[in-house]
């Protein structure tokens, strides 16, 4: 890897599943053979530009440290991590809600009335901000995945989690009782790279935006 190779950090998982087809047949299309392998650094259709496939929670660190010049990550992750990044555009896709969810039949008022409310979440910062706005207190149960199980098994009274279609909630007998915020994919940039080399980074950002808008 040389300093002349530009790296873009792409998310694995839900956002990545939506992103990869959007990039197909664009200058930033990912090499299909590499995608099928277990390789995490993948050439794109543009020489000198490669993609890193990263977990959403790790991605902002790679960009903030300047390892990757650009990245695509959900605004929910950005808000939780509060890294020093530039956020150049709301890309629109990957839209979902950050919601308070409980077992069917449990209302927001029921939860408010609990003397000791327990909320399981992997979004403690957003949850704490919402609790403060609502003048509520709660015990936060930190989880990193499968939060839907927590209310069913008595680990928590409710969860704060991302909801896209509601299918997973329904499958677990949960319902949304309040919407705390909304999230979508954002184009982020390393502050240093963007400000010190705009001649290199802005055209790449424009290329990425152009590729995604062409598919919109």
């Amino acid at each position: 890897m040389t300093h002349s190779t530009l790296l873009i950090a792409f998310p694995k998982g839900r956002l990545g599943d939506e992103l990869v087809p959007l990039l197909a047949n664009t200058p930033l299309a990912l090499d299909a053979a590499a995608l099928k392998s277990r390789v995490l650094r993948i050439p794109t259709a543009t020489p000198g530009v490669a993609a890193l496939l990263l977990k959403g929670a790790d991605l902002p660190r790679y960009v903030a440290a300047g390892v990757a010049s650009l990245g695509i990550v959900g605004s929910d992750t950005l808000d939780e991590m509060d890294m020093d990044l530039l956020e150049l555009a709301d890309l629109g896709f990957g839209a979902c809600r950050l919601s308070l969810c409980a077992k069917a039949g449990v209302t927001l008022e029921d939860l408010r009335a609990k003397p000791h409310l327990r909320l399981a979440t992997k979004f403690p910062k957003a949850t704490e901000a919402w609790l403060a706005r609502e003048d509520l207190t709660a015990e936060l149960v930190p989880l990193s995945s499968s939060a839907e199980l927590a209310p069913l098994l008595g680990l928590a009274d409710a969860i704060v989690d991302l909801v896209q279609t509601g299918g997973t909630l329904k499958a677990h007998g949960l319902v949304e009782t309040a919407i705390l915020g909304r999230s979508s994919a954002r184009l982020v940039a390393a502050r240093g790279a963007y400000l010190s080399e705009p001649g290199r980074i802005r055209p790449l950002a424009d290329m990425l935006l152009g590729a995604l808008r062409a598919k919109a």
Binding site: H3, R191, G192, A193, L195, S196
Partner: peptide, 11 residues
Amino acid sequence: LRLWAPGAQQE
């Protein structure tokens, strides 16, 4: 005023 070097991550 802020001084940068090309490719530097911080001013």
